[in-house]
Design a protein around this nucleic acid. Structure first.
Lengths: 134, 134
DNA sequence: GTTGACCTTATACCATGGTATAGGGCCGAC
DNA sequence: GTCGGCCCTATACCATGGTATAAGGTCAAC
């Protein structure tokens, strides 16, 4: 498929696709004889995944590294485990951060719920019989 | 306290504090007779909270709105509930997004754990007796 | 063979969230 | 009274993640 289809199906701007290629987040696709970029369904899936990761707060730099990890997996050779070890450490660090963020978001969630409760139940003489919480 | 202390205790750059003031994320503090900004412990707490919110992926714009919500609460007047209603809707929308993000991060977490397991247990005859998880 | 919708590269511009630098004032210690 | 360390404003600059625009090539349909 051509770049316009890819961008439309992934819901991104055409310029963004080319930007990702420059930034090495997307591979350089094969070209037609006239120089048009030619994409596969796999490219579409990767692009959608990239947008999902971004949505979760990963930077393009991190996503580029994840992509490299993913691409290196099928050919992971026991003969040179060092880059794999480095990648492992990165992923583990990321997991720690994710757990932290989930915890933080949960706290924030509870805090916001409390704020809502407070606003919904305004203090003062409006509900005379009611005790103020806490 | 003066701006240098505030910045140091909150772990941010002095320029960042002034930037937040310009962006109306921090209030304009009172000044000494010579024009120095003078901050309270409350300002420090707010600054730390701002950094925490940012860490969780909120933008300065959103944080500014949260701050406005927080500041408006003590004086929440039943005489004009409309802005409060608007704020409520905003907070609820934000809650929805938080739940979504928590879900997404959890999926990502599971995915990464699986990747780690794959890398740790390379395919082939290396661990003959071992069953694959799941 | 020309029109319109698509593609190409190159370059410039934008918002967000800062950080740095220049040029100057305040102030406590010596 | 002057030195060092802090403060002030104003302005410029930076990285990230895009978006827009100019100038031109491709191609299917008419």
């Amino acid at each position: 498929m051509r770049i316009g289809d890819l961008a439309k199906q992934a819901g991104v701007n055409i310029q963004t696709v080319r930007f990702y290629e420059r930034e090495q987040v997307l591979r350089q696709p094969p070209r037609t004889s006239s120089g048009y970029r030619s994409y596969s369904d796999l490219d579409l899936r990767r692009l959608v995944l990239i947008k999902q990761c971004q949505n979760l707060g990963f930077t393009l730099k991190e996503i580029r590294q994840f992509a490299a990890l993913h691409d290196s997996l099928p050919s992971a050779s026991p003969s040179d485990p060092k880059p794999l070890q480095a990648i492992l450490r990165m992923v583990e660090e990321r997991l720690r951060l994710i757990d932290e963020k989930i915890g933080g978001l949960r706290d924030m969630r509870a805090h916001l719920l409390e704020l809502i409760a407070q606003v919904r139940r305004p203090a003062g003489g409006e509900c005379p019989g009611r005790k103020v919480r806490r």
